[in-house]
Design a protein around this nucleic acid. Sequence first.
DNA 1: AATCAAACCGGCAGGCTTGCCTGTTTGTGT
DNA 2: ACACAAACAGGCAAGCCTGCCGGTTTGATT
Lengths: 215, 215
Amino acid sequence: MGHHHRRASLERARVSQAERAGAMRARLIDATIECVAELGYGRMSTNDIVRSARVSRGALAHHFPTKADLVSAAAQRLLERRVEDFRDRFTAMAPDRRTPAEALSVLWSFYDDTGGLVLLELMVAARHNRELAEVMAPVPERIAEVSADVFAEFFPELAGRPFLGEALRAVHALFSGLALNALPDGDRSGRGAEVRAFLKIIVSAMPQIVAFDPA
Amino acid sequence: MGHHHRRASLERARVSQAERAGAMRARLIDATIECVAELGYGRMSTNDIVRSARVSRGALAHHFPTKADLVSAAAQRLLERRVEDFRDRFTAMAPDRRTPAEALSVLWSFYDDTGGLVLLELMVAARHNRELAEVMAPVPERIAEVSADVFAEFFPELAGRPFLGEALRAVHALFSGLALNALPDGDRSGRGAEVRAFLKIIVSAMPQIVAFDPA
DNA sequence: AATCAAACCGGCAGGCTTGCCTGTTTGTGT
DNA sequence: ACACAAACAGGCAAGCCTGCCGGTTTGATT
């Protein structure tokens, strides 16, 4: 046989420590997000996470000494991923469908999906988790910011308007609330149609809003 | 001494069973709401509740066999109380301050306070608690309904408008979302002022909204 | 007065959770 | 080749939570 510290006949690729650690952290973080989505923050245990990630308990402890560390990291990661997807899905829109109404519709799809759900749970959970709170506190601001950027880029006629940012902060709040309202009944009562109706109204009132003069 | 089954010299008033049971249930429910507010739904245990209510564990088990029963009852009670307070605080407004803007401001105060917080937690918790979900599902509808009634009563010029209900459903969602956003940082960043700014915008856009024509 | 049922008490058992701890493998520097 | 540190495995202990149970008090019934 070859020398012991190097390849045997059927060896697995030699992986650097940084890679191993990174992959492990990623698996744990992804599993955490998945567990929050499926079980909810409150019912999710570290056992559920290691089971879902198919990882040992020790690995978890090694990379994330405490549960709060893990959840905070997961929240951070989710937010980043979300911001990326955000821009991607906007820029992926067919040019001829790039109306404000369509843009808002795309924006809404981010509140309707699993990630939005997880974000909701984490916002509430943050109230009793200082570490998590520090991650979640800037979220509304950040999202409004990013969407305002994208809107300004796609609809130059809105670019300069001072109240665009405020309007999109309001839209974020509105969508969060709508998602929240849909939680108990899992959107059985055709909330989608209602939201689309709201979108029309918002769009129709948008000129009024971005032109708003506080004086 | 008098007969054993009736008054001694320093007796406590004889209380009917229905009264006792009712009082006990009320204490437990109130303690539950308080605990959700202080500890959050996830961290609240039945032990916390009986401690807060200064009641024995057995009493809890007797009146609410399972934790879900108790929480559902608490949610129900909170909603009822909230609807009452709602109408009260509206009708208590000085007649000369009865503007839509002020009305919305009063409405907002219900999302800003402890009860609103608890409702938020329960909405999220309802996702994994069928019993609670059945209580929480109608909440948004109910609140929008009540506020629409009050608005129609106070501002007759809005009464007939078909989109008043929709608008107030949207307002409910918006306020819920704003309250949610304030959770992580406990409203350190002067969210109150922001909300007041939003209110002005909403009011200015309101005519546009209630007059909205989907055609 | 005697009987019954509801209200209430306090503790126990089983299960689960988290953080830690010891041991083993794998990569890295010399 | 060797020594060292990081990565990983799996189990253990202390603590808590929930639901239940037998026993006691108190109101209702006849």
